[in-house]
Amino acid sequence: MRERPAIAWFEVHAENFMRGGLLGEDLDRIATFYPLSLHAVGLSLGSAGGVSAEHVAALKTLCGRYAPVLISDHVSWSQVGDTHWPDLLPLPYTEEALDVIAANVDRVQDAIGRRLLLENPSVYVTFADDDMTEAAFLAELVRRTDCGVLLDVNNIFVSASNLGRDAAADLRDILRQVGPQAIQEIHLAGHTVSRTRSGARIRVDDHGSRICEDVWNLFCGAIAEIGPRPTLIEWDTNIPEFGVLIEEAAHADAALRGAQVEPPANALAR
């Protein structure tokens, strides 16, 4: 913060700041100089048991304190019964799951008085009983709840690669079905390519390395079609020197400079 790097905005995991304390004081300093985006990972919007009133209240308190320009969570679930499995577990793309997540998104949006952005997660499996594609699921969720979409380009690439699909086709499908208006933020991140016990190749979304060329290409394709959007470099494991993050952000900025960049505040109104 002493050097005030030329960064347009910062994004933090909301849950890390729900208890205040020393971390909260650090965030106060960042929020003094930069717009903030709150990216939740614990609302568990896809849980059949609903969302935690306590968690929603804590998010509302944070929103009141920091007036974030964007607020987001994922199309996934973590909570079942009284147990929270801290990962973005996959939802089946079914009518029932759509009803559940739409009701949960409505509840959160009503409570915080703001629009949520829903992020497409990386998935490693899909469900045999899926009724629809991820793109159709996202589009219908937007239609029902007026939420926005946080388009994670790396997740599209990771999911498609792991499921043996064409990432560019999946991206085109999402852009076409969801529509450019709903997409209000983009995430970029690195991932790891590893081998499983049987020797199969798998891409793991770990946010711990530079963004790969394939993901940059998908990103350029996306913004060429929908225009520039507030774009975040997610890097939260194996965290490098800050300069490396700045380089990745500059790379994204260079790609975005072809058009007028809308500030994230434009996504505020619900």
Binding site: P86, Y124, V125, T126, A128, N162, L163, I202, V204
Partner: peptide, 29 residues
């Protein structure tokens, strides 16, 4: 197995990824 689909990687090993993510998040906390 009939309830899940995966790509080239066997379903059980895909579940290992989720399991590892959960363990990693808990251990990190």
């Amino acid at each position: 197995r009939r309830m899940l689909r995966a790509g080239p990687c066997p379903v059980e090993e895909c579940l290992d990824i989720y399991r590892a993510n959960v363990i990693g998040a808990v251990t990190n906390a």
